[in-house]
């Protein structure tokens, strides 16, 4: 694989299509600067600022962009909001479309066939595998991402967090809670649930 990548890259560099230094910057950005902490800030802001939450509902792309997280692939962001009645889960059944600007690059299981195919057929079973069991009356909605539309789950604010500020709340927001395969941490629970690699 390494030789194939070197072959392609050297041709692209010679023809002026890519600049090796720019590639390094891109890799560094995705490895170190973009990740689920971005999404956690979006969620914590929505929990504390009703007007921001409304903005997210109306135009998530613009609201998220206002925090400095914007996509480069022309994708449209949609935020799906968990309620006591409805739990949302995100998948990309065809490949691995994922809201990079707010979550970074997807975990391996998100890209794997078992998750991509099973979560649509048996969402409750998949969530149980993640250690998440929801009340039977909770409806589960599965959202299939595309190249054009990327979904971010807005989890419910955990109880017992009245008066918490945004930064403290953001620490409760896990990556999986924004994909829908987990819930936010409970106050004082520490890092436990939803901690798949």
């Amino acid at each position: 694989m390494d030789l194939r990548v070197r072959a392609l890259e050297s041709i692209l560099v010679e023809k002026g299509y890519v600049d090796p230094a720019a590639l390094d910057v891109l890799v560094d950005t995705y490895e170190t600067k973009i990740g689920p902490r971005n999404g956690a800030r979006v969620v914590a802001r929505a929990w504390t600022d009703p007007s921001f939450r409304d903005w997210l509902r109306r135009d998530a792309t613009a609201a998220i962009d206002s925090l400095g997280y914007s996509g480069r692939q022309g994708e449209h962001m949609v935020v799906v909001e968990n309620t006591p009645d409805t739990h949302n889960v995100v998948v990309c059944t065809l490949c691995s479309c994922y809201p990079w600007p707010v979550l970074g690059l997807p975990p391996v299981w998100y890209k794997a066939a078992p998750y991509r195919s099973r979560v649509v057929l048996d969402p409750r079973g998949v969530l149980a595998d993640f250690g998440l069991s929801l009340p039977p009356q909770t409806r589960i909605r599965v959202w299939d991402s595309t190249a054009e539309i990327r979904y971010l789950v807005l989890p419910m604010r955990p109880a017992g967090t009245d008066g918490w500020d945004e930064a403290r709340l953001a620490d409760l927001v896990t990556r999986d809670s924004m994909i829908g395969t987990g819930l936010p941490l409970s106050p004082g629970a520490g890092a436990t649930a939803g901690a798949r690699p």
Partner: peptide, 26 residues
């Protein structure tokens, strides 16, 4: 592995340059 990162970045760079659209990539 490093080659994975290089391959990832090349796709982003070529898209940015307009060689293909993102839906085409997906």
């Amino acid at each position: 592995e490093p080659w994975e990162a290089q391959a990832f970045a090349m796709a982003l760079a070529l898209h940015k340059r307009g060689v293909f659209t993102w839906p085409e990539w997906a």
